[in-house]
Computed example of a mutant assay.
Amino acid sequence: MKNISKILTILSFVFLFACQQKENEPKKPKNIILLVSDGTGLSQISSAYFFKEEEPNYSRFENIGFIKTSSSQEDVTDSAAGATAFASGIKTYNGAVGVDADSTSVPTIVELVQDRKIRTGVVATSSIQHATPAAFYGHEVSRRFYENLTEDLYNSDIDYFAGGGLRFFTKRKDSVDLTKKLEEKGFYINTKELVGVDQMNGKSKAGFLLAETAMPKMQEDRGDFLPNATQLGIDFLNNEKGFFLMVEGSQIDWGGHANDASYAIAELIDFDNVIGKALDFAKKDGNTLVIVTSDHETGGFTLSAKKKKREDGTEYSDYSEVDVTFSTGGHSATLIPVFAYGPGSEEFKGIYENNEIFHKIMKVTGWNSKK
């Protein structure tokens, strides 16, 4: 009897230890929402605190890090190389989409998770074939091969996309209408407007192409397309296996290139509203990791004191009023912030290379392990 009692006591300790160890294991996120604000550095983010009427959603993050953005051959990256780092975990040359520095194709996160039945989607305010969204489904030696990238999208297993770029589907050199081909493949396709999930005729895949090239600017009454397309993507993709959704605020970058502060800030505020949608879902869901970052900074955007003139014509800086200045019409090599919320978010603290975003996602989800 004493031996049996000892055995039961040992088994009890083993069971309790195993339970405690399991409780201490970090929770794995089921869903990943990656939000990319193209061309956005710390100063652009700071502008939301001066120009947005409500408290920016950036304030809701506790785990924050920084990435180094140089591409494989250049100190200053472009969007194609930057997005390929996020999508495939490798450094490549500027202009490359889903290919390595030697121009060989590399698998994207969208492709790597398909065998796990993880549903995937991309959203952008550019054409859907533009560098950042294309890096998650395409493989081309040049980001300018828009018609080829459209074919890559058709041939991919992506479940949801929304943005511009209709002309590369319907006005092609080969005269093939790829919207019709996608419908034959089982897609719900809409070229007029976003609709609810219940209006998609029970389709398991959906694409929204709402502009011939890029979507309109916020200043041209684009409205809530980006927040709404993000929410629709979440609703459409959400399932018991999990999903991966990449959303790009594309035109913050374009405002930076144009040295147009009003353009860039309006797009940044729109993107901050997207962050709110993602965080609201993640908070309620409890199994979703939200990551917010950018491929690079554009424009050398600076929040400076407003320059004014005295009565005698001399100039001075009025520290009571913020103005925006630019130092370049191109990209810069500044460190880029990374904000993370949800299970696994602690992994994104620190300073690291941009391609580590991919590896950290695969690590915290367990998507890099054998099934």
Rank of each mutant, 00 (worst) to 15 (best):
D285S: 06
S250G: 14
E315H: 01
T191C: 13
F326R: 02
D75N: 14
S345E: 13
S59G: 00
I67G: 04
G255Q: 06
E54R: 10
E151Q: 14
F301C: 02
T288C: 09
L34F: 12
A134T: 04
E315Y: 07
H130T: 10
D285R: 08
N94T: 00
Q44F: 03
I128D: 00
A85Y: 02
D260I: 02
F61W: 09
D253I: 05
G138N: 08
D115M: 04
E183F: 00
A278L: 06
K371M: 12
G249C: 03
R143V: 05
F339M: 13
Y93M: 08
G329T: 13
I336W: 06
K370N: 12
T69C: 05
D174P: 13
I118T: 09
E23S: 09
V123R: 01
Y319D: 13
I357N: 01
I252E: 04
I64C: 05
A214K: 13
E353P: 09
F17I: 15
V197K: 15
N354L: 02
D115R: 07
I269Y: 06
S262M: 11
L209D: 04
T108F: 02
I33R: 03
V97H: 02
F339D: 05
V110D: 00
Y316I: 06
T325V: 11
G249Y: 01
P216F: 05
N148V: 06
S345H: 04
A229P: 03
E315N: 02
K91M: 12
W254H: 11
E74D: 14
H359S: 14
V322T: 12
Q114Y: 04
